[in-house]
């Protein structure tokens, strides 16, 4: 391994640690608890406790208190506070702590698809690509539907993905480095700590089909 690679790895691990420190341990552990035996549930409850988890009072702070807006500028006080804006939106565990997919589906918000024309609608494309994962880690389901609500085909094809099942090599490591799915997830779309949103298809569920 080259020096640079080694340094990169170290950095990556530190980043991962941070990510986890902030997001609460093992989303998977939590997710598992939903459909497992009581014994595991007990363990999972302990697992969800995390002293580094930000208490709600420190989330979605108003601009003047968020550490990047200048509180000495008058303009800062004219800006909307995310906490206030998100009040009526469906919640999630991470990122903006808003479930943007649900917010859109259930018409809490109606973002325009065209700059000028509020009537213009996206062409929603309902194609799922399931990517099997070895072992009993749930398989990844990539849904075009939710993505084409927000994005155009050309945002991803070919800029990020070749439009052919299995033609792209995707690994968790590349995602954490901000490539492939990580171009958006972990930056603007829900972060990588939400394992279950992507790893959504259980092996057992598949066998039942």
């Amino acid at each position: 391994m080259s020096m640079k690679m080694r340094a990169l790895r170290i950095m990556l691990m530190i980043m991962l640690a941070t990510l986890y420190g902030l997001s609460g341990v093992g989303d998977l552990a939590r997710a598992e608890a939903e459909d497992s035996t009581p014994q595991i549930q007990r363990a999972a409850k302990v697992n969800t406790f995390n002293r580094l988890l930000k208490p709600p009072s420190e989330r979605n702070l108003p601009p003047a208190e968020d550490g990047i807006h200048d509180p000495t500028s008058e303009g800062t006080y004219l800006l909307q506070s995310p906490r206030e804006a998100f009040d009526s939106l469906p919640k999630s565990n991470s990122g903006n702590r808003v479930d943007w997919v649900k917010a859109l589906e259930e018409k809490y918000i109606e973002p325009r698809f065209d700059r000028f024309d509020p009537e213009k609608k996206p062409m929603v494309f309902d194609l799922n690509i399931v990517r099997e994962v070895k072992g009993s880690m749930p398989d990844v389901v990539y849904p075009h539907k939710q993505h084409t609500e927000w994005l155009d085909c050309s945002n991803c094809h070919p800029a990020i993905f070749i439009p052919q099942k299995g033609a792209n090599q995707i690994s968790m490591a590349s995602i954490l480095m901000g490539e492939m799915c990580g171009v958006c997830h972990g930056k603007v779309a829900f972060p990588v700590s939400e394992c279950r949103k992507c790893h959504s298809q259980n092996k057992t569920a598949e066998a039942k089909n």
Binding site: F125, D126, L127, N128, I129, V130, R131, E132, V133, K134, K165, G166
Partner: peptide
């Protein structure tokens, strides 16, 4: 052609 499909990239 593809709307409504589910494709599986098997291992």
């Amino acid at each position: 052609l593809r709307g409504g499909d589910t494709l599986i990239r098997s291992l």
